[in-house]
C-alpha cells in the first residue's frame, strides 16, 4: 500500500466545489488518458484508460464509486480495477475547507497495486503511480477552475 497526498485551492465557494466533486458526470472526465467513460449514475462510473509509461503500454478498466463521508466537506472515492494481469485498488478521500478567496481541497489516496506490474516495477512504480494520481486531482482542479 502506498499513500499519496496533496492539496490545492480553488477560487470557488465550497458548496460549488462539493457539488462538482460528488458528481460522477463531472469527475469521470478528469480521469487521465480516457478511452471510454460510462457514467452509470451520479455516484458511479466506469472507465477504460490508456496507460502509457514509455514502453509500458496497456489498457486499464476502472470502476469508480463516489460517496459522501461528511456532507459538504468530506467525500470518498474508491477505485477498483486492473489490466495487463494486474490489479489496482484505491481508496481516496478529499476534504474541503473554506479559505480566503475560495476552497482548500486536501486529498489523500491509499493505493494498492497487485500483480506483475507491482512485482516488476519496483524501481519505478512509486513515481509512476504518484504521477497518475496527481494528474487526476490536477485535472479536477483544472476542470473546477474552468467551471468558475
Amino acid at each position: 500500500m502506498r499513500t499519496y497526498e496533496g492539496e490545492f485551492t480553488i477560487e470557488q465557494p465550497r458548496e460549488k466545489v462539493w457539488d462538482f466533486i460528488t458528481d460522477a458526470n463531472k469527475v469521470g472526465p478528469c480521469v487521465p488518458d480516457l478511452i471510454e467513460l460510462n457514467v452509470e449514475n451520479a455516484n458511479r462510473f466506469s472507465s477504460r484508460v490508456k496507460v502509457g509509461v514509455g514502453p509500458i503500454r496497456g489498457k486499464f478498466d476502472l470502476a469508480v464509486e463516489l460517496s459522501e463521508v461528511e456532507p459538504g466537506s468530506v467525500m470518498a472515492m474508491t477505485v477498483k480495477g486492473g489490466g495487463m494481469g494486474s490489479g489496482v485498488d484505491m481508496k481516496a478521500e478529499a476534504t474541503l475547507s473554506d479559505v480566503e478567496g475560495g476552497t482548500l481541497l486536501k486529498w489523500r489516496a491509499d493505493t494498492s497495486i497487485s500483480g506483475p506490474i507491482a512485482s516488476l516495477g519496483g524501481r519505478l512504480i512509486d513515481n509512476e503511480a504518484r504521477k497518475i494520481i496527481e494528474k487526476v486531482f490536477a485535472n479536477l482542479k483544472t476542470a473546477l477552475d474552468a467551471s468558475a
Binding site: S114, S119, L120
Partner: peptide
C-alpha cells in the same frame, strides 16, 4: 514481499 503480498523479486533482475 510488500504489505499487499506482492513478490518483489520474481525474476533474476531482482
Amino acid at each position: 514481499y510488500d504489505a499487499d503480498g506482492n513478490c518483489l523479486a520474481p525474476n533474476w533482475m531482482d
